[in-house]
Amino acid sequence: MIERIETGIAPSSAPISDAVRAGRHLWLVAIAEDPESGKIVAGGIEAQARRCIQNLEIALHAAGGTLRNLVMVQIFLVDSADAAGMNAVYREYFTEQPFPVRATVVVKELLARGLRIEITATAVLD
């Protein structure tokens, strides 16, 4: 059975779910949108990466998990020069082994204007 996890972090303008759970598996997507204002956060890659990870935490918490439940993270950046700033923020949140498996991809652009990063992730819940 597939269950939609509603958290308020997905853009309301898009026909997407915040997170979807099937059994113990959870699939998530996060952008650097402030859930209260609905606006993309300002402040460069560090601020956007932080907001993305915080949004992942919100969705994981709503499903009964934490960042420790992540097994796979895929990061999409619009500029390879942002990798260092993104990695610095990533290290703030992922400090214990085993780290999630991760892929980082540079893309031409992301759909939302001003967006520098988007993260998709897969978690296994207890």
Results as ranks from 00 to 15, higher is better:
89 V>R: 04
4 R>K: 15
96 E>F: 02
25 H>M: 10
2 I>E: 10
20 V>E: 05
88 A>Y: 06
86 M>E: 15
108 K>C: 00
111 L>R: 08
101 V>F: 07
68 R>Q: 06
69 N>A: 12
92 E>M: 12
64 G>R: 11
111 L>T: 12
110 L>F: 04
30 A>I: 04
51 R>C: 13
14 A>Y: 12
112 A>E: 14
63 A>I: 07
94 F>M: 02
43 G>L: 07
116 R>H: 07
104 T>G: 05
70 L>E: 00
114 G>E: 11
23 G>Q: 13
5 I>N: 05
65 G>I: 02
18 D>I: 01
85 G>S: 15
115 L>Y: 00
124 V>W: 09
68 R>S: 08
122 T>Y: 06
120 T>W: 00
71 V>C: 01
34 D>I: 03
68 R>P: 00
117 I>R: 03
9 I>V: 15
60 L>T: 02
53 I>M: 04
4 R>Y: 13
57 E>Y: 04
107 V>K: 05
64 G>F: 04
98 P>H: 03
64 G>M: 05
93 Y>F: 15
110 L>E: 08
111 L>F: 10
62 A>Y: 00
5 I>L: 09
53 I>S: 09
23 G>P: 04
38 G>W: 05
62 A>E: 08
47 A>T: 08
38 G>K: 06
64 G>T: 10
43 G>W: 05
87 N>T: 13
122 T>R: 07
115 L>S: 12
37 S>I: 08
112 A>P: 05
111 L>K: 10
57 E>T: 07
19 A>D: 03
83 A>H: 08
28 L>M: 14
39 K>W: 00
40 I>V: 15
18 D>P: 11
110 L>N: 09
74 Q>M: 10
39 K>C: 06
42 A>Y: 04
42 A>D: 13
80 S>W: 03
1 M>A: 13
64 G>Q: 09
108 K>E: 14
29 V>P: 00
101 V>W: 03
109 E>I: 01
86 M>N: 00
